[in-house]
Design a protein around this nucleic acid. Structure first.
Lengths: 254, 254
DNA sequence: TCTTATCTGTTTGTCCGACAAAGCTAGATT
DNA sequence: AATCTAGCTTTGTCGGACAAACAGATAAGA
């Protein structure tokens, strides 16, 4: 055998993977911008010189990864991966790893506090208006646990948005997706729970308006501690998320 | 039109999607455990009553989502989604959204501090031994920016692991993947940067050993502030990650 | 003239059948 | 008993096919 290899390592990746990689590269490095069309399957067949089945498998990979989507007429186009779509995959992973509510709570506490700090510092008038609108809707449905829980989720999403930090927005999403669905159970099970939730949101919004970081953090912590106390009345923090959550949110989605 | 609709909404999801959903459900709710075989494509064809092409498209979706993989003999089996595989896709999303290093830095500061707090509270002897091993290796390669940067990444992964909080481990990963590759540039560009890095790691490990949360947080903050100062010497924090990162880590991967 | 209905290619989703390469299995061989 | 070989299975890929959904153009009606 020669000391210097005559041949390079042959690329053994299956064709559909190469198709996916090739399209991904074009999107990542910006040659195809979000919203721009990728072309029809037929065109891709012609360009890559592979069978349509192979192209389609490659397309599925990218579609699942959120890099491309089909528009109203099912034509392919590049797109910006949606945070919450990716977050859904992560949530699923967390469930399968059987994480506990304690882990979820601890991490959410960290991220929500960071979120409110950012919001106090950098919330725009528009952010504040959105939060105010949410608060109004929350107050109107305070007696309806399901709708109130939905408002709660949105409030925290808006708060993260107000922080103007997209990395934070993304980082908090997977935990939030698993954490907040239980709010409905808690608000429904604890008398005055709804009122306390809306009150806390009110104080948080007020703190953001006044740019009072200390107050914002304080009320966010209280808000989450409230959740925790409520949760501990109906389940153990050390129980895996799987059992508690599956029976509610995931089952309902099916 | 009758007041109560006669017919239900027809399910229009394409067949490959239904195949993917059906398999996903079996895995999520635990009827198929990680490591267990899914069956051959032929069997799935028989069970679902669809064509093999359709089954294969469904399989690609799940494979990309990390729910199933092919073992050494390419047979299908369920698996636990790997954090860092999912994190890679999130990192990609962050790049496409053109987040800035400021956002990355701010979020990483939050998550690494939470990480060290958890580690101080709950690190096991094994965790500490791993961190100590890493520190030793770091000290040995202090003059080699590339290898030192790799050690730095590992140190922070181990710290998150030591926090015993899997949600936190997952949440920090996407930001870390984008954040730490720059370490090489910084350590290489700033004299004494490598020594300072190893020194900080040493203090952090020491704090974890002594269960001294304050010291742990203090040195973690210093460590990251060091990174920031180093970074600002070579680039702007408000520049999008895309440009700076692409030319280094991503290009190298190709 | 503007709107509506119809027609005509395209494109997608699905199916069928086929084949080479790689892996596995089990019987044959040393 | 260990090894080898031949045959079966499975995957990755290919070619072609067709119905349904769709876009665009054209014709009919207000």
């Amino acid at each position: 055998m020669p000391s210097t290899p005559l041949f390079r390592r042959i690329d053994v990746a299956p064709a559909y993977q190469k198709v996916a990689d090739a399209i991904e590269r074009e999107i990542i490095n910006g040659r195809i911008k979000p919203g721009e069309p990728i072309g029809t399957e037929q065109q891709l067949v012609a360009q890559f010189g592979v069978n349509r089945s192979t192209v389609r498998e490659g397309i599925r990979v990218l579609e699942e990864g959120g890099l491309i989507r089909r528009d109203s007429s099912r034509r392919l186009q590049a797109c910006l991966p949606r945070y919450n779509k990716l977050a859904t995959r992560l949530s699923r992973a967390l469930i399968l790893h059987e994480v506990t509510f304690r882990e979820l709570f601890e991490t959410s506490m960290t991220l929500e506090v960071a979120s409110v700090e950012g919001a106090v510092e950098r919330a725009t008038e528009e952010n504040i208006a959105e939060l105010a609108g949410n608060l109004e809707r929350s107050a109107a449905v305070v007696g309806n646990p399901a709708e109130l829980a939905e408002c709660d989720v949105e409030f925290h999403v808006l708060m993260a948005k107000a922080s103007q930090n997209r990395v934070l927005q993304l980082a908090r999403e997977p935990a939030a997706q698993l954490f907040f669905p239980t709010t409905e159970m808690i608000v429904g099970g604890v008398p005055e729970g709804g009122a306390r939730l809306v009150e806390a949101h009110g104080h948080i919004l007020d703190a953001i308006r006044r740019r009072d970081k200390e107050a914002g953090v304080l009320w966010t912590r209280r808000h989450l501690q409230d959740w925790r106390r409520g949760f501990e009345k109906i389940a153990s923090l050390d129980r895996s998320v799987e059992h508690t959550y599956m029976e509610h949110a995931y089952a309902a989605r099916q």
